Amino acid sequence: MTLSVLDLAPVVSGQRAADALRNTLDLARHAERLGYRRYWLAEHHLTPGVASTSPAVLIAAVAAATEDIRVGSGAVLLGYYPPLVVAEQFGLLANLHPGRIDLGLGRSAGIKESDLVKHPVFSAPEFIARYRIQQGLLGVREGAVEPPYAEQVGRILGLVGGEHHANVVEGADFEVWVLGSSAGESAVTAGELGLPFAAAYHVSPRTAQDAVDAYRAAFVPSERLAAPYVVVSADVVVAEDEATAVELAAPYGQWVLSIRAGDGAVPFPSPEGAAAFEWTDETRAKVVDRTETQFVGAPGDVARRLDDLRTATGADEVLVTTIVHDHAARVRSYELLAKAWAQV
């Protein structure tokens, strides 16, 4: 099937991170049963509404709880780690679960000097010391910039190919992906290195097509990939009927607003909490690009619209992320979509 899952391990109001993690394992088992191709875990830090802070750790748990579905990161944020650490983590995962692990890479710059005085966690002396050590491991001298993103991705590929004799990495069969949301460095890097590319339509609907076009224009065939391969992501809520889906999706705008206000995603509100929220023209304008491009409705309608997105972008797969307050409704959304997708 050309449908896959992106999971943030969302924390909903009234629950804790432990509940979200248990829900992730349960959803992964359902996704495998329903025939989804991949199950990817996101990476977000200091975010009250997201429990997926360490993709490698969560991938290990999900892969152990399932049997066949591919499990991966969407994405590991390279700004936080030396490439060697990432390569060794995923080398271990691939050795434990051969033929099932995807390493999706993101371009986040990680912690910056300016962040060290803005947040109590970052400004702690022990954090600053560790930050300096990490920058040294990344090859970043004080006052310098990080190595180019393409160079960092290239280091990971080199380790898989046998550089430096990293025994758990050399020959490991994890797939390397690049994720991006615009026609910038990520898309070009994926193309020039001959890697598959995931375009984050759910993050930036206006620029996802440009990202795909830039990737294809830059693509050079490699030993890993002979022709461009594209995944496009989408936010989706499916229910038996449109009215129910709209009700389940109602808190989404408020949740996106919390992200864009700089609060980090708050715990996902309940439909009742969303109904009580007071919107203004200004706050609605801040999230309209996301709310209007969310795929919400009955199964057949959403499946057809997702297929239209796949056709328009020329994508090979669609990566679906569904966040609603009720876990059973979330599982049901994926179930209804899988059945409807088979009929498209």
Rank of each mutant, 00 (worst) to 15 (best):
P55I: 11
Y215D: 00
L103R: 00
G262F: 07
I59Y: 06
G161M: 08
A211T: 01
G154Y: 02
R100L: 15
A51W: 08
Y201D: 05
G273V: 11
L248T: 06
P269M: 01
P55C: 09
N95S: 15
G297N: 10
V176M: 05
N23H: 15
S233D: 11
D289R: 09
L84E: 12
L8P: 07
R155K: 11
L179T: 00
I101T: 06
S4I: 14
A243M: 12
P299S: 00
R16C: 01
E43I: 11
A75I: 14
H44E: 05
T24M: 12
R22Y: 06
E292K: 04
Q152P: 15
F268I: 00
S108E: 03
E272A: 12
Q15E: 14
Y39W: 14
R37C: 07
I101F: 06
L116E: 06
E292D: 03
Y131T: 07
R22I: 06
P269K: 02
F90Q: 03
Q135P: 13
H164Q: 10
A56P: 13
E240R: 11
R141M: 09
L336P: 01
P148I: 03
L6R: 06
R330P: 04
V57P: 14
L105D: 03
H119C: 12
I323G: 03
E142L: 05
E170H: 07
D263S: 13
L116M: 04
G49H: 15
L138I: 04
D7Q: 01
H325E: 10
A124S: 11
S186A: 14
W341K: 04
W341P: 04
V169A: 07
A227D: 14
K339A: 07
I69P: 10
I156W: 01
L157D: 13
S333G: 08
A64L: 01
F90M: 05
